Amino acid sequence: MSKRIGVIVFPGSNCDHDAYHAMKHVMDADTEFLWHKDSDLSGIDLLIVPGGFSYGDYLRSGAIARFSPIMNAVMDFAKKGNPVLGICNGFQILLEAGLLPGAMLHNEDLRFVCKQVHIRVESNRSLFTSGMETGQVIRVPVSHGEGNYFIDEEGLARLEDQDQIAFRYCDENGQLTEESNFNGSVSAIAGITNPSGNVLGMMPHPERAMESVLGSDDGKLFFESVFNSLHIA
């Protein structure tokens, strides 16, 4: 049976078509848009909460989208162990919904950043990174103004103990430097999972790094890992 990818569309989403193109036209997967007022996720095998500026990022990023009708279904979907991927604003929404711990602050220099960066694979225990090597460096773009991940010391220790840190910002050689942690995230964190590993939030955009003409196709490594884990042809 064909696997289906669902891409949620909120008012203000601007990376939904990027995610759809990456899944449908690059990865050749059965992909559909899901409007934020939908509530039926039956038949969906992988759910993507894409980037953008849901509801204009009013109040704070992801805070209003968290109350969209579809989010009750998303939370049920995740709690049943199904895979959910939140990218950029999608990560912020998952934090606001309580599916992942921590919060997002404005970038340390208070500027919006849009550029290619390097991230290091910190754990390959989840289906999202199972096809990668720990310590592997991939090149992907970022595009955010509120990507400064924050969590208190106790929460950080819990992330470390439960192997929930998926990616950290690094330089091209995999070194963690002050310069490479451009937004000031705690412990240079670029992406985390929930304890069971079926929910991942990440600020970088692997769906925008699928074709070399765009500057990098390293994002394919990420989605190939996901698809192989889900046995998507």
Rank of each mutant, 00 (worst) to 15 (best):
G6H: 09
G6R: 06
G6S: 10
P11D: 01
S13W: 00
C15Q: 03
C15T: 08
A22P: 00
M23H: 07
K24R: 15
H25Y: 11
V26D: 03
A29L: 09
A29H: 08
T31D: 00
T31Q: 02
T31W: 05
L34T: 04
H36V: 10
D40Y: 06
G43E: 09
D45T: 02
P50G: 03
F53T: 06
S54C: 08
S54R: 03
Y55V: 03
G56A: 12
S61P: 09
I64V: 14
I64P: 00
A65Y: 00
M71P: 10
F77W: 05
F77Q: 11
K79F: 02
K80L: 06
G81R: 08
G86M: 07
F91A: 05
Q92E: 09
L95Y: 03
E96W: 04
H106G: 15
H106C: 14
E108R: 15
L110V: 12
R111F: 09
R111Q: 15
F112H: 14
C114A: 11
C114S: 14
Q116K: 13
R120M: 14
R125N: 14
L127D: 07
L127N: 11
G131S: 12
G131T: 11
M132Q: 11
T134I: 10
G135Y: 08
V137P: 11
I138M: 05
P141N: 00
P141F: 12
V142L: 07
S143R: 04
S143I: 08
H144Q: 05
G145C: 08
E146K: 01
N148H: 04
Y149H: 10
Y149Q: 15
F150T: 15
F150W: 10
F150H: 15
F150Q: 15
D152W: 02
D152E: 07
D152F: 01
E154W: 01
L156R: 04
I165K: 05
A166R: 00
F167K: 02
N173K: 09
Q175M: 14
T177Y: 12
E178R: 13
N183Y: 02
G184E: 08
I189G: 11
A190F: 04
G191D: 08
T193K: 03
N194L: 09
N194F: 07
G197F: 06
V199S: 10
M202I: 09
P204M: 03
E211D: 09
G219V: 01
V226P: 02
V226S: 04
F227N: 09
